[in-house]
Amino acid sequence: MVAASSAVPVLQVRDLRKRFGAVEAVRGVTFSIAAGETYGLLGPNGAGKTTTISMICGLRSRDGGEVLLDGQPVDVGAVGVKAGIGFVPQELAIYPDLTARENLVFFGRLYGMGGAELRSRVGEVLELIGLTDRANDRTATYSGGMQRRLNIGIGLLHRPRLLLLDEPTVGVDPQSRNAILESIDALGEGGMAILYTTHYMEEAERLCDRVGIIDQGQIRAEGTRRELVALIGRQDQVRLTAGGDLVAAAAAARAVPGIVGAAVQDGCLEVLAVNAREVLPRLLEAVHRAGVLVKGVDVVEPDLEAVFLHLTGKALRDAGG
């Protein structure tokens, strides 16, 4: 992985816009990715991640803005430049009635490969995604994790300059998910630029050199994890495990001086405070007055979840709903 500033961008996205009727799904998204860099688009469902990635790989027309791959414009009709892009869609875009090898050969040919080069590369990719032993079985017989790995393998087949991964771990069991993340972690070492969309904060923190936090079609902030966390300043995250009306408790918490934001997440009350130690007694009192019984208190180090909460006023995993 390399620092973004020291390398020439492989991908440049400028002021990207897309409207669906009255809804402006993507509103002026701008970012760039350098060779060997993994850039994460972190945001909840419906934030505009998939629409953005679809425009970047020329699947969807755009209403405004520009996408350049190594300086070449990318659009629906720009066929040639797509040879430099590997796309791994969110859905399992593979033929279930074909084997892994047949799927790879088919897409390899569409990427313009053939002959011995294709055969050799298919073998390499099968090895990379750990499917060599099952290469000649129909993919309908695979587990969800194996299908996901093949889904990623197809995108890697032609050694693209830019790999687009659209939430590649959705619906995957923890073990397979870890295997997928490990293999993606290794990809950037080959000089490939990677755009990774996710709504899992842990994935963005683990894989990405830089992260763009996207919400309602806009990138609200971008930078390295350290840069983004610094945006919160001295804010601490307090997690209250409690029973009762947590929504009412969140509203009560927001009214407490020194509290920056509060939201309900995973049955807990997540609170951002300027100084947790100082504000904690007033917070507990306000929550108690809201009729909520506090069972536990954790003060946690700020992370991207906290950054998202700080920037949008809502929790990452609940924002889509």
Binding site: L59, G77, A83, P89, L92, A93, I94, Y95, L110
Partner: peptide, 18 residues
């Protein structure tokens, strides 16, 4: 099936004209 599985759109992401 090719459409709903997303295979058609994936084909379009390759250097293959509509």
């Amino acid at each position: 099936l090719t459409k709903t599985l997303g295979v058609s759109r994936r084909m379009l992401s390759t250097p293959t004209a509509v």
